[in-house]
């Protein structure tokens, strides 16, 4: 087997190093949707607990402000993940929109593309799920 992938020294096959299998993970493309899932779960849980137990103790405004601040932080995180994935896709460098070939480079760019698109749809999902917080001011 070709073990040169593991070398940390610069060498003529540097590309192979960059695209090495060990540097990839399928989990990475799910980072965007995972943030969406946390956003969804935290918003829903926080609002439920508030509405059932703490509605009489304090105004919802504080909770909404806190959750919207969390939303902004998460949107920034998703945007950053999407940007990193966009760079891996490298469509501006290669001009290739799809990566159908069986090479390490194509696999690398494909995972970038998929991660980018998933970040995009997660971004939209987070925005959608924040709308109730903006539009509705109370539990009822």
């Amino acid at each position: 087997m070709d073990r040169s992938d593991h070398d940390r020294q610069p060498h003529p096959r540097e590309d192979e190093h960059e695209f090495a299998e060990e540097r990839e993970s399928l989990w990475r493309i799910t980072l965007g949707p995972t943030i969406w899932a946390f956003h969804f779960a935290i918003s829903y849980a926080a609002v439920s607990v508030y509405c059932f137990r703490f509605e009489r103790m304090f105004e919802m405004g504080w909770l909404r402000a806190g959750l919207i601040a969390m939303t902004l932080a998460m949107l920034v995180a998703i945007a950053w993940i999407g940007w990193r994935a966009f760079l891996r896709w490298d469509v501006r460098g290669t001009g290739e929109f799809s990566n159908p070939e069986g090479s390490a480079e194509d696999r690398h760019q494909f995972l970038g593309h998929a991660g980018f698109l998933l970040a995009l749809v997660s971004f939209i999902g987070v925005v959608y799920d924040t709308l109730p917080l903006i539009l509705l001011g109370s539990c009822r």
């Binding site: 969406w36 899932a37 609002v47 439920s48 509405c51 999902g125 109370s138 539990c139 009822r140």
Partner: peptide
């Protein structure tokens, strides 16, 4: 495929819209 897989876990209460949960929860 992956996106639907995730988002489909955020839909369950739409079977429970008439159970009297807070409207803002239904909104999510």
């Amino acid at each position: 495929a992956v996106g639907t897989g995730f988002l489909s876990f955020g839909l369950w209460v739409h079977h429970m819209f008439t159970t009297g949960l807070p409207n803002i929860s239904l909104g999510f």
